[in-house]
Nucleic acid binder design. Structure first.
Length: 194
DNA sequence: CAAGAGATCATCT
DNA sequence: GATGATCTCTTGA
């Protein structure tokens, strides 16, 4: 079943942990792709210097200030897209970055889009998974609690064992850079970095 | 295997 | 005008 808005309205750290073991579903004219979420990162609000919302309310961060359960997709390094899901109540700018997926359905399509056969590196990183699932800026702001082009599904899987690590690529964030807010499923072969 | 460069552009100063 | 919530390829041990 599709995760409801109340799921995303929880604290960002809880959402980041509870998304592990859930399934990201993407429907596209070329086909359906599904991946099991194995790695996430929490960006908890404007006071978190690693969070884009720390720059204030701008055209780019606008979605994060809105209601939970919406997709925040941004373009980075002139090359890749990254997918986040907005959390907490309206006005509280926070989100969870989806960092890695274990390919589940539509694997051939993902291989085609990524130009590789290797399952363990098909979606093992925020940029890679967006390529594999055809996620780009046209999905920015999409409501993931309504419609069926992009959403997260609970398939009744028991809660996985979780490991917490510092977030990746946020060395500029001062005292926030070492917060252990990157969450991985313990032992998964599909994460971006062990 | 580890380290480094380059790709390439929206966003903010 | 600088830089980034990344990835791939190349180089060298």
């Amino acid at each position: 079943m599709k995760l409801p808005r109340s799921f995303y309205a929880q604290s960002t750290l809880q959402v980041a942990r509870q998304l592990l073991g859930k399934y990201l579903v993407r429907r596209h004219p070329d086909g359906k792709t599904v991946g099991r979420i194995v790695e996430t990162e929490a960006y908890v609000g404007p006071h978190d210097l690693a969070c884009h919302a720390a720059k204030g309310r701008t055209a780019r961060t606008e979605v994060m200030f809105g209601p939970p359960g919406h997709a925040y997709v941004y373009f980075i390094y002139g090359v890749y897209y990254c997918l986040n899901i907005v959390t907490e109540e309206v006005g509280h700018a926070s989100a969870v970055l989806i960092r890695a997926l274990e390919p589940v359905e539509g694997i051939e399509l993902m291989q085609q889009r990524r130009g590789t056969q290797k399952l363990h590196s098909l979606a093992s990183g925020p940029g890679k998974l967006c390529l594999a699932m055809a996620i780009d800026k046209t999905l920015n702001g999409v409501d993931m609690c309504r419609g069926n082009i992009l959403y997260v599904e609970d398939r009744g899987e028991p809660r996985p064992k979780i490991v917490a690590r510092p977030r990746i690529g946020v060395d500029y964030a001062g005292k926030w850079k070492d917060k252990p807010w990157r969450f991985l499923i313990r032992g998964s072969e599909f994460v971006s970095k062990p």
